[in-house]
Design a protein around this nucleic acid. Structure first.
Lengths: 338, 338
DNA sequence: ATGAAAGCGCTAACAT
DNA sequence: ATGTTAGCGCTTTCAT
């Protein structure tokens, strides 16, 4: 800031009106090519840049979007953020970071930022709407895209993956290897994503005619330590599993780590499948078999969808956009030893 | 957005002037406690929120800061981002993400965003200033804090760690274990951070009276794959090392991975030390010995420094703020086998 | 303690 | 094709 040239300065130097300058700078066809050029040159010479606050006030836009996650510290979001940032920047939008840490106050705060004109739209990856909100569906007119997680009944457009199916395929892989005693370390049920992945696990088990013994569904919280804790609990059972389907890679790391500590070889004695395919998973030892989500694509797609909404496009017709996952079979899974 | 109540609406309902409402809402002492209360109540009732564009235009501030990194996809930045975000939010600032990917055009673009009033200040973690810039020192009046990396001669305030010393201590640890053939996988020299860490390696070697054989300094690029590549090159040497000091954890993962692939046990045959202490490093196998940087603290400190500058404080007096590192000794290092 | 009025820098009618 | 003018919604002198 400080004193910078404004449109008025250019207008005076060029001997035209501010309106002409404004038009010229936005390449309006209502200006002679000649004067347009002259004004552009002058602007460059004076090192002119438009004041965004003034423009925002006038145009009632901020050219910024809000990307709200549960935890900015989670490596899972990285590629998504990257995809969002790239698509946003190409379209001339800036990206504001929002971090709720599951705090309802902050969840509301970010919705307020939308209203306040801080941002024109929002990509929500927290899996929930602020509490005390209006009745169901009343959010659906806001320029908000829900990504990664689902908010049922919100009426908002979604970009997601088929968690049930991806989880089922992962467990089917274990079953295909010959495992029968397969346990699950879930996310923080009853959050939808955790429920879906657990549902996939249950489906695969049922379809294979396998029953899930008591205690075989351990509830984690997606963090490393909970993977270790759940693993310990599972192997304290009278009949411990020979394979683990873990609801995310981070907990899978923790579980594998704990298995080694307990002297169980992975995959020699116990197979482990994760979910997410964090990009370090291939360098993990053993390289982790895991479900990969198209994270960058989720980010790009969500942002593209938001852009289309912001430019007056329809709001996705209600059907969620579902992106494909893939099972990455690596070194942490093998046939059971017994 | 859409039609929301403005100050004028409140003023009319309250039967006062817009000025009084503005004063009341900012808790000015120039308003009777009574009317102030009445206006606050009315504002809440009407669900009033100030329009930030209008306020920004008037106050010539944006209440936003720009956090610019080389690669948003790099997990290293996570905790820093978290620290910045937390401190910023407490002070009422929003955080805009910037991602340069070493593209000079974008580097300039983010500086322009500062000028344009998109943000009031910037935390720069790219390690460089835009090219073609003004002469040395001419940046120093901008509200910019350099974090993590150093930009020598910029005159800008810095928040950093002592990379030379941290690297030296890491190598001294290997020497203390009895290693003599210690190789280094560096970052992309001649970037300052890579140079500093290499310098620490060289210093430790020299002080221990060890010479560095030809080829023992492999140049990486901080990415996983380059750790593998460099490792392969080092072990193709006639006299391969017994220990590796790797300039960051990510490459250390790659190196350890490659060592296993080549059939070398870590740390049985080869010790590996990393740098950064990514939070998955403790779950790595073997748990990685590495230098930990106080990342969240770097973020908080940089943001706090920026805030003090924005509130008119001095610009840090020129001395960089140096935060302490710690060597985390874990399972990837052991005495040499021979 | 309150009001009237100016103006932040820009865009967009509405003239011409 | 260009100029005039009226705001966008807020804060802040300057009066009273």
């Amino acid at each position: 800031m400080r004193d910078r040239p404004k449109i008025k300065d250019i207008a005076e130097k060029a001997g035209v009106s501010v309106a002409t300058v404004s038009r010229a700078l936005s390449d309006s066809a209502l200006v002679t090519a000649e004067t347009r050029q002259r004004i552009h040159d002058l602007a460059r010479e004076l090192n002119y840049r438009p004041n965004v606050s003034a423009r925002n006030l006038r145009t009632r836009k901020s050219m910024a979007v809000l990307l709200v996650v549960r935890d900015v510290g989670n490596p899972f979001y990285l590629d998504i953020l990257k995809g969002v940032e790239a698509t946003a920047r190409e379209a001339g939008y800036a990206v504001l970071m929002g971090n709720t840490e599951n705090d309802p106050v902050r969840e509301i705060e970010y919705f307020n930022m939308l209203r306040d004109g801080h941002a024109d739209g929002m990509i929500l990856m927290t899996g929930k709407l602020p509490p005390g909100g209006n009745r169901t569906g009343s959010w659906s007119h806001l320029p908000v895209v829900v990504a990664l997680e689902m908010i049922e009944g919100s009426g908002l457009p979604h970009v997601q993956v088929d968690n049930v199916r991806a989880a089922r395929e992962a467990v089917e892989h274990l079953i295909g290897l010959g495992h029968r005693r397969i346990a699950h370390i879930s996310g923080p049920v009853p959050e939808p994503m955790s429920l879906y992945r657990r549902e996939g696990y249950r489906l695969a088990m049922r379809e294979a005619g396998l029953t899930i013994p008591d205690g075989y569904e351990a509830r984690g919280n997606f963090l490393l330590e909970s993977g270790q804790d759940c693993c310990r609990a599972l192997f304290a059972l009278p009949a411990p599993p020979t394979a683990l389907f873990v609801a995310n890679d981070e907990m899978a790391y923790g579980a594998a780590h704990e298995l080694r500590r307990m002297g169980h070889d992975v995959p020699g004695e116990v197979s482990v499948v994760g979910f997410d395919d964090l990009y370090l998973s291939k360098a993990f030892y053993p390289p982790l078999t895991t479900v990969s989500q198209p994270r960058a694509d989720i980010g790009r797609t969500a942002m593209a969808l938001l852009l289309s909404i912001l430019s007056g496009g329809s709001r996705a017709g209600g059907e969620p956009i579902v992106l494909p996952t893939a099972l990455n079979i690596r070194g942490s899974t093998a046939p059971p030893s017994a």
